[in-house]
Amino acid sequence: MGQARALMGLSAQLDEELDFREGDVITIIGVPEPGWFEGELEGRRGIFPEGFVELLGPL
């Protein structure tokens, strides 16, 4: 779908969440519900709030 750069780090609180560090580039693979993305980073998949990232182009 597209890519996004992390504006800040996120520590996953639930198993389905993706954790990442500020500056990581995450591949967006879905939008499971409004306000959330599903992404992949370094072979890991999970969901995260859209406010933690900036899109690097259209989805």
Rank of each mutant, 00 (worst) to 15 (best):
M1D: 02
M1V: 10
M1I: 14
M1A: 06
G2E: 04
G2F: 06
G2I: 13
G2A: 07
G2D: 07
G2C: 13
Q3P: 04
Q3C: 10
A4G: 14
R5E: 00
R5K: 08
R5Y: 07
R5S: 03
A6R: 01
A6L: 04
A6P: 03
A6E: 00
L7I: 14
L7A: 00
M8P: 06
M8V: 14
M8A: 13
M8T: 14
M8L: 10
M8F: 11
G9S: 15
G9H: 14
G9T: 15
L10R: 15
L10P: 08
L10C: 14
L10M: 15
L10V: 10
S11H: 11
S11V: 13
S11K: 11
S11R: 08
S11M: 10
S11G: 08
S11Y: 13
A12Y: 00
A12R: 14
A12M: 07
A12H: 06
A12D: 05
Q13I: 09
Q13N: 13
Q13L: 11
L14V: 14
L14F: 15
D15N: 07
D15F: 02
D15W: 03
D15P: 15
E16I: 13
E16C: 14
E16S: 14
E17K: 07
E17M: 14
E17I: 11
E17T: 11
E17Y: 14
L18V: 01
L18A: 06
L18R: 01
L18P: 00
L18M: 01
L18Q: 07
L18N: 06
D19N: 12
D19H: 12
F20G: 03
F20M: 07
R21G: 10
R21Q: 13
R21L: 11
R21A: 12
E22A: 11
E22W: 03
E22T: 12
E22R: 12
G23S: 05
G23F: 02
G23Y: 03
G23A: 06
D24S: 03
D24Q: 08
V25I: 14
V25E: 10
V25H: 10
I26C: 00
I26L: 08
I28S: 12
I28V: 10
I28F: 03
I28G: 01
I29T: 15
I29V: 13
I29R: 10
I29S: 01
I29C: 05
I29N: 03
G30F: 06
G30M: 03
V31F: 08
V31P: 00
P32H: 10
P32D: 00
E33D: 06
E33K: 15
P34M: 07
P34E: 14
G35K: 09
G35L: 01
G35F: 05
G35E: 00
G35Y: 00
G35I: 01
W36D: 01
W36I: 15
W36E: 01
W36H: 09
W36K: 11
F37G: 02
F37Y: 14
F37L: 13
F37K: 07
F37M: 08
E38W: 08
E38A: 10
E38T: 12
G39I: 01
G39S: 03
G39V: 01
G39K: 01
G39E: 04
E40I: 13
E40N: 05
E40K: 09
E40P: 01
E40F: 08
L41G: 04
L41R: 11
L41F: 13
L41S: 05
E42D: 15
E42N: 15
E42C: 11
E42S: 10
E42H: 11
E42L: 07
G43Y: 04
G43M: 01
G43V: 00
G43E: 10
R44N: 05
R44D: 02
R44I: 04
R45I: 09
R45D: 03
R45F: 06
R45W: 08
G46P: 05
G46L: 04
G46A: 00
G46N: 03
G46M: 03
G46C: 06
I47F: 11
I47C: 12
I47V: 14
I47T: 10
I47W: 07
F48V: 08
F48M: 05
F48A: 09
F48Q: 09
P49K: 11
P49N: 08
P49A: 03
P49G: 05
E50F: 10
E50N: 04
E50T: 10
E50Q: 13
G51K: 15
G51T: 13
F52K: 12
F52D: 00
F52H: 15
V53L: 04
V53N: 00
V53A: 03
V53P: 00
E54Q: 08
E54A: 07
E54M: 05
L55G: 02
L55C: 07
L56I: 11
G57C: 12
G57Q: 14
G57N: 10
G57K: 12
P58Q: 09
P58R: 05
P58A: 12
P58C: 07
P58D: 13
P58H: 06
P58G: 10
L59E: 11
L59H: 14
